[in-house]
Design a protein around this nucleic acid. Structure first.
Lengths: 185, 185
DNA sequence: ACCTGAACACCGTTCAAGT
DNA sequence: ACCTGAACACCGTTCAAGT
């Protein structure tokens, strides 16, 4: 019987599991990624994962949380120096690699509270950030919330569907027209 | 050993399978619905389903096709007599019952060609229908396509996320402002 | 406290065999 | 042509037993 690997630092092993999970989730999607495969890549047994995470959804939620925190802090930095237009386009670009997971987030949110919570927090973070920008640019206050929601739904839609580059540009252009503070003048 | 039930009409049995599948899919979602459970409700063995459908995704696609054809023909009738606003609100309402499946459609489209095809056809049908309406109401031609896409992404977004009634109304209101032909005058 | 091997109850799908 | 019982290779998860 292989030894316990208590030599390895505890939180380090947890991080290895998360890293393996993230890599395989991103490459092959949630469903095709088995706990066994994650465990092998992390150098542990499948059941060891259950010592650190209470289930596959909770592991997925932990992976999401890391990805999202990187993304949100990058966006929050950018939002001070770049325009809304540049940030929207940047969001579309930098999310591309996580495309298969975006659909999964919605699917698992209906099943797992852990995933649903992470999903909600994400929407709140991004939408409050964009709302702040619109507010400072003199956008009519009453319209900010619904318009931000429209923008985030469109971004999600663009990531979830196969859309040609040309069409994508047209959609972003129209979306930006809606988001322009000039419309209130 | 139970007899073959070749007494039952062939296409009738196929329909029974589709009906059982639809009911359980709608009630419990794709993942929680096993082939075995569908087969029991339809009064056949699990493997019999594989005589009529090449897999779970193909059965799901067939179920979707039926649901969509009912929906599209209803929408196409309505679009002649009702306003765009009324039809948008009607779409939101009448889709509510299929909420769990909308997310699944996107998830399985990434995996199954059969589901992807049905999904694409659906978007094309709805968007060409709405495009026709906008065209007749004198909407600037170049903006029709992207704006229609925005509308359909927002409808999907509203169906995929938990949104309060009040917020939903605000979003629809802002969306309609974008879709109003008056903006071109 | 941490980790294992073995088992559990499922799953979608396949296949040889029946009618 | 149509349908079955039995099996296959998996899956996420649990648990008694080890260190």
């Amino acid at each position: 019987m292989p030894k316990n690997r208590q030599d390895l630092d505890n939180s380090l092993k947890k991080q290895m599991i998360k890293d393996s999970a993230r890599n395989i989730f991103l490459a092959d999607g949630y469903e095709k990624t088995s706990i066994t495969r994650i465990s092998k890549q992390a150098g542990v047994t499948a059941n060891t994962i259950y010592w650190y995470f209470s289930g596959k959804d909770e592991l997925f939620a932990a992976v999401l949380e890391e990805l999202i925190s990187v993304f949100v802090s990058a966006l929050s930095q950018r939002s001070e120096t770049y325009s809304l237009e540049e940030n929207l386009l940047w969001m579309l670009e930098s999310f591309q690699f996580a495309k298969p997971l975006i659909i999964t987030v919605h699917e698992r949110s209906a099943i797992s509270d852990a995933v649903a919570t992470v999903h909600n927090n994400f929407h709140n973070s991004v939408e409050s950030l964009l709302g702040k920008v619109l507010n400072e640019s003199g956008f009519e206050a009453a319209r900010i919330k619904p318009v931000i929601r429209i923008a985030s739904f469109v971004v999600e839609g663009l990531l979830m569907h196969e859309v040609s580059i040309k069409e994508k540009q047209e959609i972003v252009k129209q979306l930006l027209a809606i988001l322009s503070p000039l419309r209130d003048k």
